[in-house]
Amino acid sequence: MTVIIELKDATVQVNNGFDETKTILDHVNLTIHEHDFITILGGNGAGKSTLFNVIAGTLMLTSGSIFIMGEDVTNFTAERRAKYLARVFQDPKMGTAPRMTVAENLLIAKYRGQGRGLVPRRIGHFKNEFKTLLARTGNGLDKHVDTPTGLLSGGQRQALSLLMATLQRPELLLLDEHTAALDPKTSVSLMALTDSFVKGDQLTALMITHHMEDALKYGNRVLVMKDGKIIRDYSQAEKAKMEIADYYQLFE
């Protein structure tokens, strides 16, 4: 089975401003295989976002190492890792350019990671392709191809962010509490869309969530983090035996 990401003794220490060193990621060892869909649970300060930032390269390790597709990327910048990764953030505003149309945002995503000179963008050439793609969301986005993204609802904007993140099929999709800012109904529909994308396109995904129901329903592994450590790593078989009460018990 192909290993997509491997963390070895990944540790991050920061100075809290009082000449004290705080460990926010504590000797984490993690292997993510191709087609894994892993949900991550943990309270505030557990290390979930730190883990994502370490993988993405926006936060460097104090010690330990990280490999992507077998390549040691420990000292790679976020820009050098971007060819492997895509990320959907909690805030719907973070994944899209508000003054650009839906089509223009998709065009940027289509050519992500490729060298581009000063050439005509030929956006009309891709309109039908983009409409077909947008129709997959089921929330009317295909009728807003020429709408500035800033005028979309939060749910539509997150669905667009998800489309943009998966358009080039990343080696790893990072879902950073991407439903947290949405109302319950929109959150449910976006999770169903996420699951269809991950399964349909056979993606490898890592998802932070505070919704126990989503951790129970989606994915093949569950990680539980506390104090910068992974304290549980439930396999698909173990996860299948768990009920929602078991998840809440982890935090008592």
Rank of each mutant, 00 (worst) to 15 (best):
N15D: 13
N15R: 11
N16L: 07
D19M: 12
D19Y: 11
D19F: 11
D19S: 15
E20N: 15
T21E: 13
K22M: 15
K22A: 15
K22H: 13
I24W: 07
I24S: 07
I24H: 03
L25G: 06
L25F: 01
L25A: 04
D26P: 08
D26Y: 00
V28Q: 01
V28G: 06
V28T: 07
V28F: 03
V28K: 06
V28N: 00
N29M: 11
L30Y: 00
L30M: 02
T31Y: 07
T31A: 10
I32Y: 01
H33S: 10
H33I: 01
E34I: 15
H35Y: 14
H35A: 05
F37E: 11
F37T: 03
I38A: 07
G42P: 08
G43M: 03
G43E: 04
G43K: 03
N44Y: 10
G45L: 04
G45V: 04
G45R: 02
A46R: 08
G47W: 14
G47K: 06
K48W: 00
S49A: 15
T50G: 02
T50I: 04
L51G: 12
F52K: 07
N53V: 11
N53I: 11
V54I: 14
I55D: 01
I55S: 00
A56K: 08
G57R: 13
G57F: 06
T58N: 09
T58M: 12
T58W: 14
T58Y: 06
L59P: 09
L59D: 13
M60Y: 09
M60A: 12
M60N: 05
L61F: 12
T62I: 10
T62Q: 12
T62Y: 06
T62F: 11
S63T: 05
S63C: 13
S63P: 11
S65K: 10
I66W: 01
I66V: 11
I66K: 05
I66H: 04
F67P: 03
I68W: 08
I68C: 10
M69S: 13
M69R: 00
E71H: 03
D72L: 15
D72M: 15
V73D: 01
T74Y: 06
T74I: 13
T74D: 14
N75Q: 14
N75W: 13
F76Q: 03
F76G: 02
T77Y: 14
T77W: 14
A78V: 04
E79R: 13
E79W: 14
E79G: 15
R80I: 00
R80Y: 10
R81H: 05
R81E: 05
R81W: 06
A82N: 10
A82Y: 01
A82K: 04
A82Q: 01
A82R: 05
K83E: 12
K83N: 05
K83C: 00
K83H: 02
Y84S: 05
L85Q: 02
L85M: 03
A86Y: 11
A86W: 04
R87F: 07
V88P: 09
V88Y: 08
F89R: 06
F89G: 07
F89H: 08
F89M: 06
Q90R: 01
D91K: 09
D91A: 08
D91E: 11
K93Y: 14
K93V: 14
K93M: 10
